[in-house]
């Protein structure tokens, strides 16, 4: 079925494009929401990503899984958006020091997906992007440094600060 949809997209059939959009909307949004400040911004980034998908669908190798290809494009688009917004990025200061909040796993097990995304979105774009790339996408600091044009040290520092801020936010929401 997906193969037929992609075939239709290659022929620029609007119906096939919509089918693909609906099929991967939630998955794409689950990525862009983590990089964006709001749902609307996440939807805009996702649409930019879909535009790249439709423009480059002919270069997609049908023998490979579509999902990683799509994921890669969405992440790249989110990073491009990060670069565009970089000039107005503001590095937030650390909220507080380390605590032992996460030594008790049961405390955090009840947090919903939406709450978690809400917390990530509260991070500054620089922290949030590094956190997502490292923790969720699984990139190494050296790779992240290359993607974001920052040093490895900055990547590590931003991750550390992102985690510290998230702990602060979790503590604030749970207690």
């Amino acid at each position: 079925m997906l193969a037929d949809i992609i075939k239709g997209c290659r022929k620029h059939h609007r119906g096939s494009q919509k089918e693909l959009y609906e099929m991967f909307y939630a998955y794409g949004m689950s990525i862009t929401l983590r990089y964006a400040d709001s749902r609307n911004q996440a939807a805009a980034v996702l649409n930019d990503a879909f535009m790249k998908v439709f423009e480059n669908i002919k270069s997609y190798d049908s023998n490979r899984d579509f999902k990683p290809w799509f994921r890669r494009i969405v992440i790249n688009t989110a990073i491009n958006q990060y670069h565009k917004d970089r000039k107005r990025l503001q590095m937030t200061e650390p909220l507080s020091g380390e605590d032992d909040l996460f030594s008790e796993e049961h405390i955090i097990s009840g947090i919903s997906y939406d709450e978690l995304i809400g917390m990530v979105q509260e991070l500054s774009p620089a922290y949030r992007t590094v956190f997502n790339l490292y923790v969720i996408e699984g990139f190494k600091h050296k790779e992240i440094a290359g993607m974001l044009d920052i040093s490895v040290g900055t990547s590590k520092s931003n991750l550390s600060k992102a985690k510290r801020n998230l702990r602060e936010l979790l503590e604030r929401n749970l207690i």
Partner: peptide, 12 residues
């Protein structure tokens, strides 16, 4: 926690 929750998306 974040890695696990990221997979639990339910987006309308």
């Amino acid at each position: 926690l974040f890695r696990k929750k990221a997979e639990e998306y339910d987006i309308s």
